[in-house]
Nucleic acid binder design. Structure first.
Length: 279
DNA sequence: ATGACTAAGCCACTTAGA
Protein backbone atom coordinates (compact mmCIF):
# COMPACT_ATOMS: atom_id res chain seq x y z
CA UNK A 1 0.00 0.00 0.00
CA UNK A 2 1.21 3.48 -0.86
CA UNK A 3 -0.05 6.13 1.58
CA UNK A 4 0.38 9.87 1.06
CA UNK A 5 -0.48 13.02 2.99
CA UNK A 6 -0.78 16.47 1.45
CA UNK A 7 -1.95 19.85 2.69
CA UNK A 8 -3.51 20.85 -0.64
CA UNK A 9 -4.48 24.43 0.34
CA UNK A 10 -7.88 24.24 -1.42
CA UNK A 11 -8.90 21.05 -3.20
CA UNK A 12 -11.03 22.99 -5.67
CA UNK A 13 -8.22 25.33 -6.74
CA UNK A 14 -5.98 22.43 -7.84
CA UNK A 15 -8.09 19.28 -8.09
CA UNK A 16 -6.60 18.29 -11.47
CA UNK A 17 -3.10 18.58 -10.10
CA UNK A 18 -3.95 16.53 -7.01
CA UNK A 19 -5.64 13.69 -8.91
CA UNK A 20 -2.86 13.63 -11.53
CA UNK A 21 -0.30 13.27 -8.75
CA UNK A 22 -2.22 10.43 -7.09
CA UNK A 23 -2.57 8.53 -10.36
CA UNK A 24 1.00 9.19 -11.55
CA UNK A 25 2.49 8.07 -8.24
CA UNK A 26 0.12 5.11 -7.80
CA UNK A 27 -1.09 6.42 -4.45
CA UNK A 28 -3.58 4.04 -2.83
CA UNK A 29 -4.58 6.28 0.07
CA UNK A 30 -4.27 10.08 -0.05
CA UNK A 31 -4.97 12.05 3.12
CA UNK A 32 -5.63 15.71 2.41
CA UNK A 33 -5.71 18.77 4.67
CA UNK A 34 -6.97 22.32 4.10
CA UNK A 35 -9.49 21.27 1.49
CA UNK A 36 -11.08 24.69 2.14
CA UNK A 37 -14.62 23.70 1.22
CA UNK A 38 -17.77 22.09 2.50
CA UNK A 39 -18.58 18.45 1.78
CA UNK A 40 -21.19 19.65 -0.72
CA UNK A 41 -18.51 21.61 -2.60
CA UNK A 42 -15.95 18.76 -2.71
CA UNK A 43 -15.02 17.67 -6.28
CA UNK A 44 -15.88 14.01 -5.75
CA UNK A 45 -16.36 13.30 -9.47
CA UNK A 46 -12.74 14.01 -10.41
CA UNK A 47 -11.55 11.51 -7.81
CA UNK A 48 -14.20 8.93 -8.72
CA UNK A 49 -13.19 9.06 -12.39
CA UNK A 50 -9.64 8.21 -11.31
CA UNK A 51 -10.87 5.29 -9.20
CA UNK A 52 -10.91 6.81 -5.74
CA UNK A 53 -13.50 6.68 -3.00
CA UNK A 54 -13.45 9.86 -0.91
CA UNK A 55 -14.50 10.67 2.63
CA UNK A 56 -14.52 14.43 3.20
CA UNK A 57 -15.16 16.63 6.20
CA UNK A 58 -15.52 20.39 5.85
CA UNK A 59 -17.81 23.09 7.20
CA UNK A 60 -16.66 26.22 5.33
CA UNK A 61 -13.76 27.79 3.44
CA UNK A 62 -11.58 27.20 6.52
CA UNK A 63 -9.73 23.98 7.36
CA UNK A 64 -11.33 20.78 6.08
CA UNK A 65 -9.82 17.29 5.74
CA UNK A 66 -10.41 14.32 3.46
CA UNK A 67 -9.12 10.87 2.59
CA UNK A 68 -9.20 9.43 -0.94
CA UNK A 69 -8.70 5.69 -1.28
CA UNK A 70 -8.78 3.04 -4.00
CA UNK A 71 -10.30 0.62 -1.49
CA UNK A 72 -13.41 1.60 0.46
CA UNK A 73 -12.88 3.42 3.76
CA UNK A 74 -14.63 2.11 6.86
CA UNK A 75 -15.25 3.26 10.44
CA UNK A 76 -15.20 6.93 9.46
CA UNK A 77 -14.99 9.47 12.29
CA UNK A 78 -14.86 13.28 12.05
CA UNK A 79 -13.20 13.89 15.42
CA UNK A 80 -11.18 11.98 17.99
CA UNK A 81 -12.42 11.63 21.58
CA UNK A 82 -11.81 14.76 23.65
CA UNK A 83 -10.96 16.93 20.64
CA UNK A 84 -11.58 20.54 21.70
CA UNK A 85 -13.46 23.05 19.57
CA UNK A 86 -12.76 26.72 18.86
CA UNK A 87 -14.95 29.70 18.06
CA UNK A 88 -14.89 33.40 18.86
CA UNK A 89 -11.41 33.00 20.34
CA UNK A 90 -12.66 30.46 22.88
CA UNK A 91 -11.35 26.90 22.87
CA UNK A 92 -12.60 23.94 24.84
CA UNK A 93 -15.11 21.12 24.97
CA UNK A 94 -18.08 23.49 24.72
CA UNK A 95 -16.88 25.32 21.60
CA UNK A 96 -17.93 24.00 18.18
CA UNK A 97 -15.55 21.49 16.63
CA UNK A 98 -13.55 22.50 13.57
CA UNK A 99 -13.00 20.23 10.55
CA UNK A 100 -9.43 19.22 11.39
CA UNK A 101 -9.57 15.44 11.82
CA UNK A 102 -10.89 12.55 9.77
CA UNK A 103 -10.31 8.97 10.82
CA UNK A 104 -10.90 5.93 8.63
CA UNK A 105 -9.75 2.33 8.34
CA UNK A 106 -8.32 0.89 5.12
CA UNK A 107 -6.29 -2.27 4.61
CA UNK A 108 -6.27 -2.84 8.35
CA UNK A 109 -4.63 0.54 8.98
CA UNK A 110 -6.34 3.17 11.12
CA UNK A 111 -5.51 6.46 9.36
CA UNK A 112 -6.12 9.94 10.78
CA UNK A 113 -5.88 12.87 8.36
CA UNK A 114 -5.01 15.76 10.68
CA UNK A 115 -4.78 19.50 10.28
CA UNK A 116 -3.32 20.68 13.58
CA UNK A 117 -4.35 24.26 14.51
CA UNK A 118 -1.85 26.88 13.40
CA UNK A 119 -1.60 28.75 16.69
CA UNK A 120 -1.36 32.16 14.98
CA UNK A 121 0.97 33.74 17.56
CA UNK A 122 2.58 32.86 20.89
CA UNK A 123 0.07 33.63 23.63
CA UNK A 124 -2.89 33.90 21.24
CA UNK A 125 -6.03 31.97 22.27
CA UNK A 126 -5.47 29.94 19.11
CA UNK A 127 -2.02 28.95 20.41
CA UNK A 128 -3.50 27.50 23.61
CA UNK A 129 -6.16 25.80 21.50
CA UNK A 130 -3.36 24.21 19.46
CA UNK A 131 -1.70 22.86 22.61
CA UNK A 132 -5.03 21.61 24.01
CA UNK A 133 -5.84 19.96 20.69
CA UNK A 134 -2.47 18.17 20.61
CA UNK A 135 -2.90 17.09 24.23
CA UNK A 136 -6.26 15.49 23.48
CA UNK A 137 -4.73 13.80 20.42
CA UNK A 138 -1.94 12.37 22.56
CA UNK A 139 -4.50 11.02 25.03
CA UNK A 140 -6.40 9.35 22.20
CA UNK A 141 -3.21 7.74 20.87
CA UNK A 142 -2.24 6.60 24.35
CA UNK A 143 -5.66 5.04 24.95
CA UNK A 144 -5.77 3.37 21.52
CA UNK A 145 -2.32 1.83 21.86
CA UNK A 146 -3.02 0.74 25.45
CA UNK A 147 -6.18 -1.09 24.39
CA UNK A 148 -4.79 -2.41 21.08
CA UNK A 149 -0.98 -2.18 21.19
CA UNK A 150 -0.52 -3.97 17.86
CA UNK A 151 -2.98 -1.79 15.92
CA UNK A 152 -1.46 -0.33 12.75
CA UNK A 153 -2.20 3.32 13.53
CA UNK A 154 -1.05 6.29 11.45
CA UNK A 155 -1.38 9.98 12.26
CA UNK A 156 -0.70 11.86 9.05
CA UNK A 157 -0.98 15.48 8.04
CA UNK A 158 0.04 19.03 8.73
CA UNK A 159 1.24 19.16 12.34
CA UNK A 160 2.23 22.83 12.18
CA UNK A 161 5.29 22.09 14.29
CA UNK A 162 8.96 22.01 13.25
CA UNK A 163 10.24 19.44 15.78
CA UNK A 164 13.92 20.40 15.50
CA UNK A 165 15.82 23.53 14.46
CA UNK A 166 16.93 21.65 11.34
CA UNK A 167 13.25 21.49 10.34
CA UNK A 168 13.00 25.27 10.15
CA UNK A 169 14.74 27.13 7.34
CA UNK A 170 12.44 30.14 7.34
CA UNK A 171 14.35 33.16 8.70
CA UNK A 172 11.07 34.82 9.76
CA UNK A 173 10.29 31.92 12.10
CA UNK A 174 12.50 32.58 15.10
CA UNK A 175 12.53 30.41 18.19
CA UNK A 176 11.02 32.31 21.11
CA UNK A 177 9.07 34.68 18.85
CA UNK A 178 7.04 32.43 16.58
CA UNK A 179 4.68 29.50 16.62
CA UNK A 180 5.78 26.12 15.17
CA UNK A 181 9.14 26.23 16.97
CA UNK A 182 8.22 26.97 20.59
CA UNK A 183 9.17 24.57 23.38
CA UNK A 184 5.54 23.74 24.35
CA UNK A 185 4.69 22.84 20.75
CA UNK A 186 7.79 20.69 20.45
CA UNK A 187 6.96 19.03 23.76
CA UNK A 188 3.44 18.28 22.50
CA UNK A 189 4.94 16.68 19.40
CA UNK A 190 7.41 14.67 21.51
CA UNK A 191 4.49 13.48 23.65
CA UNK A 192 2.94 11.86 20.58
CA UNK A 193 6.17 9.93 20.10
CA UNK A 194 6.21 9.01 23.80
CA UNK A 195 2.68 7.68 23.38
CA UNK A 196 3.98 5.07 20.94
CA UNK A 197 4.33 6.74 17.54
CA UNK A 198 7.38 7.42 15.41
CA UNK A 199 8.09 9.51 12.33
CA UNK A 200 8.40 6.78 9.70
CA UNK A 201 9.66 9.13 6.98
CA UNK A 202 12.66 10.70 8.68
CA UNK A 203 14.80 7.54 8.89
CA UNK A 204 14.45 7.14 5.12
CA UNK A 205 14.39 10.84 4.17
CA UNK A 206 16.54 12.55 6.82
CA UNK A 207 16.48 16.05 5.33
CA UNK A 208 14.11 18.23 3.35
CA UNK A 209 11.20 20.58 3.93
CA UNK A 210 7.51 19.97 3.24
CA UNK A 211 6.31 23.60 3.21
CA UNK A 212 7.55 26.90 1.80
CA UNK A 213 5.74 30.21 2.36
CA UNK A 214 4.39 31.76 -0.84
CA UNK A 215 5.95 35.06 0.18
CA UNK A 216 9.51 36.37 -0.17
CA UNK A 217 10.87 33.76 -2.59
CA UNK A 218 10.91 31.14 0.12
CA UNK A 219 10.84 28.20 -2.30
CA UNK A 220 13.57 29.35 -4.74
CA UNK A 221 15.74 30.16 -1.73
CA UNK A 222 14.77 26.84 -0.09
CA UNK A 223 13.78 28.57 3.12
CA UNK A 224 11.04 26.12 4.06
CA UNK A 225 9.86 24.11 7.03
CA UNK A 226 9.35 20.41 7.71
CA UNK A 227 5.92 20.32 9.35
CA UNK A 228 4.03 17.55 7.53
CA UNK A 229 4.52 14.08 8.98
CA UNK A 230 3.50 10.45 8.92
CA UNK A 231 3.61 9.11 12.46
CA UNK A 232 3.01 5.39 12.94
CA UNK A 233 2.60 2.84 15.70
CA UNK A 234 5.13 0.00 15.82
CA UNK A 235 2.97 -2.29 13.64
CA UNK A 236 2.69 0.46 11.04
CA UNK A 237 6.36 1.46 11.24
CA UNK A 238 7.46 -2.18 10.83
CA UNK A 239 5.57 -2.36 7.53
CA UNK A 240 7.22 0.70 5.96
CA UNK A 241 9.47 -0.16 3.00
CA UNK A 242 10.00 3.29 1.46
CA UNK A 243 9.32 7.01 1.79
CA UNK A 244 9.52 10.21 -0.23
CA UNK A 245 8.91 13.94 0.00
CA UNK A 246 7.72 15.17 -3.40
CA UNK A 247 9.48 18.54 -3.52
CA UNK A 248 8.68 18.96 -7.22
CA UNK A 249 5.00 19.46 -6.36
CA UNK A 250 5.92 22.92 -5.05
CA UNK A 251 6.87 23.86 -8.63
CA UNK A 252 4.81 24.64 -11.69
CA UNK A 253 1.37 26.14 -12.14
CA UNK A 254 -0.57 27.10 -9.00
CA UNK A 255 1.12 24.85 -6.44
CA UNK A 256 0.03 24.32 -2.87
CA UNK A 257 2.50 25.78 -0.38
CA UNK A 258 2.93 22.21 0.97
CA UNK A 259 4.14 19.09 -0.88
CA UNK A 260 3.05 15.45 -0.56
CA UNK A 261 4.77 13.07 1.85
CA UNK A 262 4.54 9.41 0.85
CA UNK A 263 5.27 6.01 2.42
CA UNK A 264 5.16 2.50 1.01
CA UNK A 265 3.90 -0.30 3.24
CA UNK A 266 4.15 -4.07 3.07
CA UNK A 267 1.16 -5.13 5.12
CA UNK A 268 1.26 -8.83 4.23
CA UNK A 269 2.93 -9.62 7.57
CA UNK A 270 5.72 -12.12 8.24
CA UNK A 271 6.16 -14.62 5.43
CA UNK A 272 5.39 -18.12 6.73
CA UNK A 273 7.65 -19.65 4.07
CA UNK A 274 10.65 -18.14 5.88
CA UNK A 275 9.88 -20.03 9.06
CA UNK A 276 11.17 -23.51 9.75
CA UNK A 277 8.54 -26.21 9.48
CA UNK A 278 8.03 -27.91 12.82
CA UNK A 279 6.18 -31.22 13.07
C1' DA B 1 9.36 50.51 5.18
C1' DT B 2 9.03 44.41 8.93
C1' DG B 3 5.64 45.42 3.44
C1' DA B 4 4.83 43.05 -1.56
C1' DC B 5 1.43 35.50 -1.74
C1' DT B 6 -2.72 32.87 -2.03
C1' DA B 7 -7.65 31.42 -1.55
C1' DA B 8 -12.51 32.05 -0.42
C1' DG B 9 -16.55 34.70 0.59
C1' DC B 10 -21.03 38.91 3.18
C1' DC B 11 -16.27 39.65 -3.22
C1' DA B 12 -12.75 44.88 -4.32
C1' DC B 13 -11.96 44.17 1.26
C1' DT B 14 -11.37 40.91 5.09
C1' DT B 15 -9.73 36.70 7.29
C1' DA B 16 -6.55 33.12 7.62
C1' DG B 17 -2.55 30.70 6.73
C1' DA B 18 2.60 29.77 9.46
Amino acid sequence: MRLATWNVNSVRARVDRIVEFAVRESVDVLAMQEIKCTVAQFPFDAFAEAGYHVEAHGFSQWNGVAIASREPLTEVETSFPGMPGFANNVSGPDSPLEARALGATVGGVRVWSLYVPNGRALGDPHYFYKLDWLGALEQHVRQTLTETPDQALALVGDFNIAPTNADNGDPAVVEGFATHVSAPEREAYAALEAAGLSDVVRPLVPTGYTYWDYKRLRFPKNEGMRIDFILGSHSFADAVTGAAIHRNERKGEAPSDHVPVVVDLDLTGPDDDDRPMIF
